[in-house]
């Protein structure tokens, strides 16, 4: 319901282009709530994150209220509402890695990329986040870039790896 229409100048965030979203939605002629998560995954793959105006487009199509879509997105850690970098760096902060020097590795990443945990570089190349034990403690300290594991890290090795992307 409208209380006060939003004028173009008041729309603060830049709007994401809806073409990709429409292409994805075109595959679902009669979408139901069961399709929501697959749709969100494809949107996230296509845009790198879930832009708000794209979600507003989805809510009209799948007839699921925006609040509920937001609830789903915040429930699953795989989804992000902020633009993400092309590559995701996950640094293990589990006990084994911590003991074997993860704090130094983290310092190095911040030094090289100028971002803290949870942030994305300005050029949207990297998003950097801490994770709990990756289950490869024998390789500690460990980090992942996208799907690839890098073990027995040193600060030098870390810098090299980051530069290789």
């Amino acid at each position: 319901m409208m209380h006060k229409p939003v004028t173009a100048s008041e729309k603060s965030k830049p709007l994401a282009d809806l073409t990709k979203c429409r292409d994805i939605l075109a595959k679902y002629t009669s979408a139901t709530s069961a399709d929501l998560i697959p749709i969100l995954q494809q949107i996230q793959d296509a845009y790198g994150y879930l832009p708000q105006n794209v979600l507003e487009e989805i809510t009209a199509r799948v007839r699921i209220p925006l609040s509920k879509i937001y609830g789903v997105i915040t429930f699953y850690s795989q989804f992000s509402l902020e633009p993400r970098g092309k590559h995701t760096i996950k640094v293990c902060v589990g006990t084994a890695c911590h003991i074997k020097g993860a704090p130094d590795i983290k310092k190095k990443i911040t030094e090289v990329l100028h971002i803290q945990e949870g942030e994305t570089t300005k050029d949207y190349k990297f998003t950097y986040e801490p994770v709990a034990c990756l289950g490869t403690c024998f390789l500690a300290p460990v980090m992942m870039v996208n799907e690839r594991y890098y073990g027995k890290l040193t600060t030098e090795k870390t810098e090299q790896i980051l530069k290789s992307y």
Partner: peptide, 9 residues
């Protein structure tokens, strides 16, 4: 009106 939802976990 569907304004509220549970968020996070």
């Amino acid at each position: 009106q569907h304004i509220w939802a549970f968020s996070n976990r």
